[in-house]
Design a protein around this nucleic acid. Structure first.
Lengths: 199, 199
DNA sequence: GTCTATATCATGATAGAC
DNA sequence: GTCTATCATGATATAGAC
């Protein structure tokens, strides 16, 4: 899903090409400030093609959203499989988010920051979606194992991931120029202190 | 700034009346899904009046934004004046936000959740605005006093307020029906653990 | 399946009477 | 200062040739 405004789409990659361009424009100007014509023009594709593939602007957003959520979901699954203890899992989640922030800030902005409810009316809120539920499951399991203090799951999730998400907002808003991975340990160590079980 | 769709505006209160209606509509349907006509109709005011007072839709958003930021700013100032230690100040900030969430969720949503950059192009990002800077100043002072661990200010802010802001997102998205003030201590106690100086 | 040209409509904004 | 009526624009979406 690389963004290349110059190149015309190769056959078969058209769908992803359009989605990449759309993501780029959405994250630059916002969903509502981006017209189908903008996308069509930037993607060097006819408007007919867009409507053929996606049925319209909302269809593009839907497809994009689904792709990105699936991608995040796969990432969280991978972390859960690769790491066994809660501390390592949480750290890996934060690290992954921070890395994604640097390699694909537009994707992160679209998943974490955009207000999808305003243009995807029937979609459930993002924090009810699979990857975010899986992130909470990590914490639930941590409680069962006694690694994480017994507490309300939403509170635990807020404390565990809230700081990292806030750092992402800061970075997206330009409050720091330091690539986020440099913060991984500081942020996660601090968050961990707030949820760990100190028995 | 109460919202009353039935009543026509009384003279002199017109400005606030319009802003209240606008806030209501913005938070229900989103800024871009709300037309000037929608506001005009709901506020029982002529379109001419709107353009006279605010100069257009963006003018409404600007005024609303300024009002709400000023309100938050006053609140944070008040907390800083009323409380002396960092722990109490942070707790009061979280408590205030949580209370505001229940008494005026639309205001909270507009300040904390909306993506202003998409419609207020020249406005700096919200987390650079006065109240959020003041919130970080509380932490900076806390470090100087040795109450808060020496750490990057953005990291400290993320850890201190990120969890509370995340809870607000959860509540706005309907993940919990419990009024947030019930969570105040749990959330702040946990956040405090992550930043306090345990010398 | 892709393209161009066009229909349809809602929006932000203004004009000008009162 | 407020109102109604109207404009101009640009958006989504479709039609129909290739």
């Amino acid at each position: 899903m690389s963004v290349n405004l110059a190149a015309a789409p190769k056959r078969g990659e058209l769908r992803d090409h359009i989605l990449g361009i759309a993501l780029h424009l959405f994250s630059q100007k916002g969903y509502f400030n981006t017209s189908v014509h903008d996308i069509q023009r930037a993607a060097r594709v006819s408007i007919g093609s867009i409507y053929n593939h996606f049925g319209g602007k909302e269809g593009i957003a839907k497809a994009l959203y689904a792709d990105l959520v699936a991608r995040m979901s796969g990432f969280v699954e991978g972390v859960t499989a690769a790491q066994t203890d809660t501390y390592s899992r949480g750290r890996a989640v934060v690290q992954g988010l921070f890395e994604m922030m640097e390699t694909d800030p537009e994707a992160i902005a679209f998943v974490v920051n955009a207000r999808h409810r305003e243009f995807l009316a029937d979609e459930p809120p993002i924090c009810s979606s699979e990857p975010f539920v899986a992130m909470r499951d990590i914490l639930r399991q941590g409680m069962d194992r006694g690694e994480v203090r017994r507490m309300d799951l939403l509170v635990a999730a807020s404390c565990a991931y809230g700081p990292a998400l806030r750092m992402i907002s800061f970075r997206l808003d330009g409050l720091t120029d330091t690539p986020l991975p440099a913060y991984t340990d500081r942020v996660w160590e601090a968050a961990w202190r707030s949820i760990r079980n100190e028995a």
